[in-house]
Amino acid sequence: MACVVLSLVGISAAPAAEMVRIPAGDYAPPLRAAGEPERVAVAAFLLDERPVTNADFLRFVTAQPKWRRSRIAPVFTDEAYLQHWAGDLELGPLAPPCAPVVRVSWFAARAYARWAGKRLATTAEWELAAAAGFTRADGKNDPELKHAVQQWIAWPVPAILPDAKRARPDFNGVRGLHGLVWEWVEDFSTAMVTGESRGDSGLDRDLFCGAGAVGSRDPGDYAAFMRLALRSSLTARHTTTSLGFRCARDVPEDSSP
């Protein structure tokens, strides 16, 4: 009987983040390979309104024991996984329930998304969403957004992160894309500033078929360039104190815009 009750708790604790529809658009990668178009078309998609919180992630590890701090296989994470939590199933003072979860690897973020029936956003999708301003669809000419982004980049990561639900919503209603934490994307490893990161020295064609074709674009958008640099420096096992994630999903086929 206790078993049944426990499993019911697990089922009812579905992740709570609302999803927002991001309209179709295009994305101009800061770096692109020869022959790659300057702008990549991105279909409309659904994106979590806020990053995944500690409370959300606690529900996940409660339901999926293999992703608990003491049980996760070391192939899927470095040693700092959820290190700021008080225990396997206890958040503690450094991890408020509503703060974004950080110190999670790409494998763990993907596993959460799969559990939630969602997926991670692609780089193109994430950057399209992040291009929105606070008061207009295109943030390029939004001085408030520019200011918020620059402030954040200059701002050290606090030991205790703020409430993800209180971040200011942007034009699409999405919170915290700028100014809260960095976020995993599904294809982070395709940000090829260098070749394979272990034990090689760059863009040797033999080592990295095709990578010699990568050329640099106008690095006008400094924050986007920072994100590119961050993504290219990560491996899927990495965790950091300022790297979290949110989930995305395809727009259901029968829904009209």
Binding site: A33, G35, P37, M192, G195, D206, L207, C209
Partner: peptide
């Protein structure tokens, strides 16, 4: 690919750039 440390991506041609 992530477990092995292989980086790759699909190019517009449909081919893949990848570490060897």
């Amino acid at each position: 690919a992530a477990l092995l440390g292989v980086k790759y991506r699909r190019e517009p041609s449909g081919n893949f750039a990848h570490s060897n």
